[in-house]
């Protein structure tokens, strides 16, 4: 607690888009309550504190630190370790910190290919001399250093121990507010903190529980991309062939996407006891595919099923859109075996 008796609040933004920060701001005028209750000691996005300030704090100085963003480079990791040390309660805030989120989709490729795509091949990039970021560059004034880019994106929890997780891309403002209220109450001794390690600000069942669309026994004969069909209103999207991650995704968001005709993206991550959200969605989806009948010869059988599977674009990207870093495999294998030189592909070397 600060001298004024207020708990100290920090928020940090590692490898992320900034949406989490905006989501916090989206609690609107309740932000004033936050300011009233907390003493903000670090929040680069909203207040002018430097890393140096944090380094100067004693360990455990920050009472509550919301950490959003994945661990993409050495700077992210350094800050994760620093904030862990300086915080009493460290919260993985949002999908990137929790499970890698969109940044972790680059785990499907190599560091070299990622850099190449971003700095050389992207149509909007002008880089005629083909310069790629270097960790160290010598200039007349001396040596410049930038953070080193990792091969594999990790979640916050894969780098440091995390006390709580608030899922979502981004977490819904009403859920953020609910968590803050609990924390405030707990700090005032009016409520208990949730058990350590738990996922807070979210539901205990899948999105379908909150989804008002009508659900029936499911059979899917083919899948569609969202732009291919106009979904029939009121009916479960999955039953209409639109991939909806809802059944395999933790609820709490209010099923916002399916209600506007867009299949759940899966941003709240897997449910309790589920290790791999993608595998769960894969098995559920494949189970309700209606293709191949008893009595068919094995070749025709496979062909019919493959034809349906052809309509699922990018299974890895779809099923692990948010949870790649936390998946069982964690990343793709590029260029042969792991742990050996020559891991990177492309023109890196």
């Amino acid at each position: 607690m600060s001298d004024n008796g207020k708990p100290r609040f920090g928020m940090y933004w590692a490898s992320s888009c900034g949406g989490c920060e905006i989501s916090v701001l989206n609690i609107h005028d309740k932000l004033l309550v936050v300011d009233e209750v907390f003493d903000v000691v670090f929040w680069p996005c909203a207040a002018d504190f430097k890393y140096e300030d944090v380094r100067g704090y004693p360990d455990g100085y920050i009472d509550l630190c919301l950490f959003n963003g994945a661990i993409r480079n050495t700077e992210n990791e350094e800050m994760a370790r620093l904030l862990r040390r300086k915080s009493k309660v460290l919260v993985a805030f949002g999908s990137c910190a929790y499970e890698g989120c969109i940044p972790a989709l680059s785990n499907l490729t190599s560091k070299a290919d990622t850099l190449q795509a971003v700095y050389l091949n992207s149509p909007s990039t002008e880089n005629p001399s083909g310069i790629l970021p270097q960790p160290r560059t010598s200039v007349p004034e001396g040596e410049l250093e930038i953070p080193e880019f990792y091969h594999t994106v990790k979640s916050l929890g894969q780098v440091v121990p995390v006390d709580y997780t608030i899922p979502g891309c981004p977490p819904e403002p009403h859920q953020i507010w609910a968590v803050l209220e609990t924390v405030v109450a707990a700090l005032k001794g009016q409520a208990d903190l949730p058990p350590a390690g738990s996922i807070i600000g979210a539901g205990q069942t899948a999105v379908c529980e909150e989804c008002p669309l009508t659900k029936n026994e499911k059979t899917v004969r083919r899948f569609y991309r969202p732009w291919e069909v106009k979904p029939e209103p009121g009916l479960c999207l999955l039953e209409q062939g639109l991939v909806c991650m809802g059944p395999a995704t933790r609820g709490g968001c209010g099923a916002l996407c399916p209600q506007v005709g867009m299949g759940c993206r899966g941003c709240y991550g897997p449910l309790d006891g589920v290790e791999d959200q993608g595998a769960r969605m894969l098995t559920a989806l494949a189970s309700v595919v209606e293709a191949g009948r008893p009595g068919m010869d094995e070749h025709t059988l496979e062909k019919e099923i493959e034809a349906v599977m052809d309509t699922i674009a990018d299974p890895a990207g779809t099923f692990y859109r948010f949870s790649m870093a936390h998946s069982i495999l964690k990343r793709a294998r590029v260029n042969g075996n792991g742990g050996k030189p020559g891991l990177q592909s492309g023109s890196g070397e």
């Binding site: 529980e209 659900k215 809802g246 559920a284 189970s287």
Partner: peptide
């Protein structure tokens, strides 16, 4: 039951009609 969201993925999978919604 507390974990079931009622998504009904499983409903058509049982050849013995053991799954009830």
């Amino acid at each position: 039951e507390e974990k079931c969201s009622g998504c009904r993925i499983c409903n058509g999978l049982c050849p013995f009609n053991a799954i009830i919604f």
